[in-house]
């Protein structure tokens, strides 16, 4: 589903990603771990199409399409989703309006008519239940006045609404207490299917107690320095990153 080959990216002339190779297949959950500043968030931003980063080398094929050629919204319409580490507040745009616009823009791309009001309401209710979100959130401005945990739940809610083929969750666990973490993880597990895939970027192993990865990558200084099965996460938790970096 996703083939990243030799990906280099820089910001303001400073190289952050120095050759990334990752291959994700349908039905898989990949975890990307790594210390702060290793390039985890840059990787997710580049995949989602943030133009503050320059891709200097390499390519990314998503479902056989050259992903880097697409605008951020085109990537989303092709089924890519980025869960933000720091979800953005948009005062004056209600969650309902935001989601309705997003869904209809995606439906338009697929040649479908706009979603009916009844259908939309039903979908909202259903997906809010997935993340145990209170219905009062729907009328409020996107992420405005939300706590850290509420913002992250809202990311998972949006993911559930949009039903992406590939979801990249950038440190969705950061700043979450254990209950919120469980809710977020349960949301991901409910959405997991044989025909979609997840890339979970995390600093800690903790999240991986709830979302079991098939593959774990360790990213350090812009490179993947180790790829293994889920046991790697436990080893990192126990021994830290030093043995990998020095080795």
């Amino acid at each position: 589903m996703l083939e990243i080959k030799g990906l280099h990216a820089s910001i303001g002339g400073k190289e952050i990603l120095k050759g990334i190779d990752i291959s994700v297949k349908e039905g898989e959950v990949h975890a990307i771990m790594g210390p702060n500043g290793s390039g985890k968030s840059t990787l997710s931003a580049v995949l989602a199409g943030r133009d503050t980063f320059d891709v200097t080398e390499g390519d990314v094929k998503y479902k056989g399409i050259d992903l880097l050629e697409l605008e951020p919204e085109e990537r989303a319409r092709q089924g890519l989703f980025l869960g933000f580490q720091y979800p953005v507040e948009i005062p004056g745009v209600s969650n309902v309006n935001f989601m309705k616009t997003a869904i209809n823009e995606q439906r338009k791309f697929r040649g479908l008519p706009p979603i009916s009001a009844a259908e939309f309401l039903k979908l909202m209710r259903e997906k809010m239940a997935v993340v145990e979100m209170d219905s009062s959130f729907s009328g409020r401005g996107v992420n405005v006045g939300f706590s850290g945990g509420e913002k992250k739940r809202n990311e998972i809610f949006q993911m559930a609404m949009l039903d992406p083929a590939l979801a990249i969750l950038d440190e969705t666990d950061s700043g979450l207490d254990i209950d919120a973490l469980r809710i977020v993880a349960a949301g991901v597990n409910k959405l997991k299917r044989a025909d979609n895939a997840f890339i979970v970027i995390t600093h800690y192993q903790r999240l991986l107690d709830y979302i079991i990865p098939d593959v774990v990558h360790v990213l350090y200084d812009g490179r993947i320095i180790k790829t293994a099965g889920k046991e790697l996460a436990l080893e990192v938790e126990e021994r830290g990153y030093d043995w990998l970096i020095k080795g």
């Binding site: 919204e73 948009i90 616009t101």
Partner: peptide
Amino acid sequence: DENALFYMRSRGIGASEAKLLQQLAFAYD
């Protein structure tokens, strides 16, 4: 707000529609 625009675009909302939403929100106050 570029961050807000990118956030909206990452959900599939086209650039011009995202700008419009932000302007409407500004006027809505």
